[in-house]
Amino acid sequence: MSEARSNQHLLSVENLRVEFPTRRGTLVAVDRISFHIDEGEVLGVVGESGAGKSLTGAAIIGLLEPPGRVAEGNIVFDGERIDDIGYEKMRRLRGNQIAMIFQDPLTSLNPLFTVGRQLTETIRTHVSIDERKARVRAIELLNEVGIPAADRRVDQYPHEFSGGMRQRVVIALALAVNPRLIIADEPTTALDVSIQAQIITLLKRLCREHGTSVMLITHDMGVIAETADRVAVMYAGRIVEIGPVGDVIKRASHPYTRGLMNSIPVIRQDIEQLVQIDGSMPRLTDIPPGCAFNPRCPKVFETCRTERPELVDVGATKAACWLYDYARRPGAGSTT
């Protein structure tokens, strides 16, 4: 908000570690990750299911399901720590400053309340205006997300909307109080392919218009390529590569990212078979020592199996891979 902070990142996450204590020991679902999001920026977060993308989002907005907890690190939003501010302060931030959109628009809306009621309720939780004005604002919002005849549909129930329309309502709800950051957790996964592009385009346009930053969690590299400014690739609870989207896509540094890129079909290329990464992501209970990707990595060498790589600069991006530590990679001068 203040001028002094204008050179700061809107959100910065430092060394975040999310744990789940279980009877058989503690599972580390997000393992010391750091990244930031600037004002108006779209950060894509990609990775397979279970890579810790959604948990990172939930940790930022303070909605980790117990027993999950932030065990280490800090989350700074707009210059202030928000990971330890207590339930009530965090609640005031939610929806107001940081909003979140979930995967399934069919179940994100309460079936027993009209769309308008859910909108006005959200608005009036954060802004002190009367019901009539909130309703006017609700209709505006529905118009803004492209719902035809908004003044009539505001009084309808969620079941009277199609999936795509419901996701528009969900976006309207997230944008209701003009938050500065939206965490969109697979916002289009549950929708028809034909609708997905519409929703992504809408989300992108609205956030640009409002100057809202977005953390876009998805496993769809296509969506990331079209939408994000920067992208973070997650694997087994860690960020393996992060950087501007063009660089990550065209000149992927980490072998995992390269594998991901190779597994995307390219329309104009006539190839017999898509390349896939052998094996699957380790379960949280048996993440190997060293680099978590080492059992599947085509370029694995000794160091990868024993020491965990940190993010290092590789051109425009950062990658967590020993290949880019020239002192440690095999055949490097220091080993002779």
Partner: peptide, 25 residues
């Protein structure tokens, strides 16, 4: 339910979530 999670993400008060959204369902 997801709509309770979404209601929390919108910053609604516990009172509104428990007695408005949850109880009615």
């Amino acid at each position: 339910a997801d709509y309770i999670k979404f209601a929390r993400a919108r910053g609604l008060t516990n009172r509104a979530i428990h007695f408005g959204h949850a109880l009615k369902n």
